[in-house]
Design a protein around this nucleic acid. Structure first.
Lengths: 217, 217
DNA sequence: CGCTTCTTTGAGTGCACTCAAATTGAGTGG
DNA sequence: CCACTCAATTTGAGTGCACTCAAAGAAGCG
């Protein structure tokens, strides 16, 4: 939160607010602004053909998004009520002529999203359903740690999680039940999950089986 | 292609060359340069845990890549012998203080890759194997049109295509055979394929329903 | 020409899917 | 506060697609 001041703050900006579920911008729109997420959770998504929706990113406080100069390549929607800082693209570009730091920050924002998405593709293409769910929970836990160790709060719906992991909601539901009954995770209400082991390094999730991960306790 | 990056040519740059199969940069390395592809084909990939490899992008002449300010979030390898122009990151950043155009071009480069990857995820998650292969062939045909209508040249191996589409090479091989016997595509040697109908505009493949897009072929 | 690498083909199986219905939860008004 | 409604989630049953394992065939390369 305190870190939310940046070199970008020399540009024209306003605080804006969106209610849960609202569209922040739509794919194909002209890009006129860049956003920083201050509070809440945002999803970036592409809406496919038959109403299939693929969520390509979940964003949390501190994240920069909407870094496009032409048209939006994805939609942004508020997962929860959100507070944003809206920077005009024009003023950011102007500001970039004053210091390379601005360009660096903009590139870093784009780079972070790209890196996450690249690994996201890798996970979807190569992991089984249970592995994907565990990977997601650990990623979320590392990203937004709960107060007590291993506790993960999920601000988004099951549908959102399924659309992020490339699973159907039915499969996701079954997998979560399986993880609960096998004791790999515990439930603290429908949107709070406790991981058996406090966050595991992400790279282990891809290589080890859930059993191997557990036996490493 | 010269117009796309002409504004960057005020930065320090050299022509460089890589042989087929060579590593241009590796995931995790410090980012010190940005590249423009002048000739040949490059793949961006992330290497998963158990030796799984996910190709996240195929690049063609005119494309800008390696736009990172910190560490490489993916590896880049030469699919064929390639000619590149290598820009030092530092000089590009310095140049960005002279004109917003530089920042715009850098952002546009990043934006293009992100947009393609976002749709790539969507395809992998929601299309069947035959649909993925047809989508890839049409994308490639639109990107690198052969001399005669509908002819697509594949500079990359079957293994590369499989790793791009999230399929095994066996499945890819079977699907291609199926498309050949059903007459949907024709072979002109192992690395040249003729599509039944001349290439469809890319936006139709992404935004329309698969039925609409595929039946339009 | 012999070697390695790439690609194709074969056989069989399991996982995640579709279709369908029950159940829970959230929001609204009496 | 409690029905009521509509959406979200869970559960059930059954099936097909893409996978793994295994081996033959084709193509590149010294």
């Amino acid at each position: 939160m305190t870190k939310l001041t940046s070199v970008l703050d020399g540009a024209a900006r306003w605080p804006v607010h969106y209610r849960k579920g609202r569209l922040i911008y739509d794919e194909g729109e002209a890009s006129k602004a860049v956003y920083r997420l201050d509070k809440g959770c945002v999803r970036l998504q592409v809406n496919g053909a038959e109403g299939d929706r693929q969520i390509v990113a979940f964003l949390f406080p501190g994240d920069l998004f909407g870094l496009c100069v032409d048209r939006r390549n994805s939609s942004a929607e508020a997962v929860t009520d959100v507070d944003l800082t809206r920077y005009t693209l024009q003023s950011l570009l102007d500001l970039s002529t004053r210091s390379p730091e601005v360009t660096i920050q903009l590139m870093r924002g784009a780079e972070t999203l790209y890196g996450e998405l690249a690994h996201h593709v890798e996970q979807i293409a190569h992991l089984s359903a249970p592995e994907r769910v565990l990977w997601f929970l650990h990623w979320l836990g590392a990203r937004e740690p709960g107060r007590s160790g291993g506790t993960v709060r999920l601000p988004m719906s099951r549908r959102d999680v399924a659309d992020y992991l490339g699973l159907t909601q039915e499969t996701l539901s079954r997998v979560i039940r399986q993880l609960l009954t096998s004791g790999e995770v515990e439930a603290r209400g429908p949107r709070m999950i406790v991981l058996r082991r406090p966050t595991v390094p992400l790279h282990q999730l891809g290589s080890d089986t859930p059993e191997a991960a557990l036996s490493a306790l």
